[in-house]
């Protein structure tokens, strides 16, 4: 049992390091005869195949057959087998969410720290060695010192990624935006004044960029909380990102949501 557990966790770690999604199915309760088997775990792959054994082949198959569909969130479920009731926990082990921050300036610093706290794997890109270095971004998973236009060749910005464009200039912002748009990341934000972002959007529309894809860009980035300092602006960006990831578009104080005073 212990050997089996060790092997399962070893595989889970290897898969996590490869950024792969693998779900698990664990026996959490059952009749006294399986007391020694509690905690036995299957690795369940996206294609539906499974690795491991819960008690025996028959119970393993029964457990897998009872996983609630669609299997997209952690779920506890019970099923009967051979006159006994068993309960299993289906757990989702999605790889860490990724955020890519273009620009290593003064807002990126607190933003990277906040994103890391929120358990994102953060990549920072800047073309200046003085800005793209680990000393400036100790919490980043990766710091790339490369031309912005080149970064797209090394990065996957799709899927559940967040892309934040905070470069020092309008020219670089356009480069990064053009690179990121085809990936349709989960969250795509670009900083800038009203004038700067309007000019960028107009340029891209004139170049024939898809208007619908451009509408998905959150620019100027962040929620309107009257943020002033770099750290405050980073909070405003992070707050918008949280809402985007959890499917919410209702930015309002909880106090307003809970209490409706006349």
């Amino acid at each position: 049992m212990r050997q089996q557990t060790a092997e399962s966790y070893h595989k889970l770690l290897q898969l996590a390091e490869q950024g792969r999604t693998v779900n698990t199915l664990s026996l959490v309760s059952g009749p006294p005869k399986v007391a020694g088997h509690l905690g036995q775990m299957l690795l369940v792959f996206p294609d539906g195949s499974a690795d491991g054994v819960i008690v025996d082949g028959e119970l393993t198959r029964a457990a897998l057959a009872h996983v609630p569909r669609p299997a997209v969130k952690p779920a506890l479920f019970a099923f009967d087998h051979g006159g006994d009731t068993y309960r299993c926990f289906f757990d989702i082990a999605a790889p860490k969410r990724q955020a890519v921050v273009f620009g290593g300036g003064h807002i990126s610093q607190p933003l990277v720290a906040i994103l890391a706290l929120m358990d994102f794997r953060v990549t920072v890109v800047d073309d200046r060695p003085d800005f793209a270095n680990r000393a400036r971004f100790p919490q980043a998973t990766t710091v790339l010192c490369t031309a912005f236009a080149k970064a797209g060749e090394q990065l996957d910005l799709g899927g559940a990624s967040a892309v934040l464009i905070l470069t020092r200039g309008h020219r670089y912002d356009i480069e990064c935006l053009k690179m990121a748009l085809p990936f349709t990341p989960r969250y795509l934000g670009m900083i800038g004044s009203r004038r700067r972002v309007t000019a960028i959007m107009d340029t891209l529309l004139a170049e024939g960029e898809d208007p619908q894809r451009l509408r998905a860009v959150r620019t100027p980035v962040g929620l309107d909380i009257s943020a002033q300092t770099p750290a405050e602006i980073a909070v405003s960006i992070a707050a918008e990102l949280v809402a985007a990831y959890h499917g919410g578009a209702q930015y309002r104080p909880l106090s307003e949501k809970v209490f409706r005073h006349g």
Binding site: R2, Y9, L12, L13, A16, K96, D119
Partner: peptide, 13 residues
Amino acid sequence: MDDQLLRMINQIL
């Protein structure tokens, strides 16, 4: 699961 937690579990085992 958090990679860090996973690493700790592996070390313990």
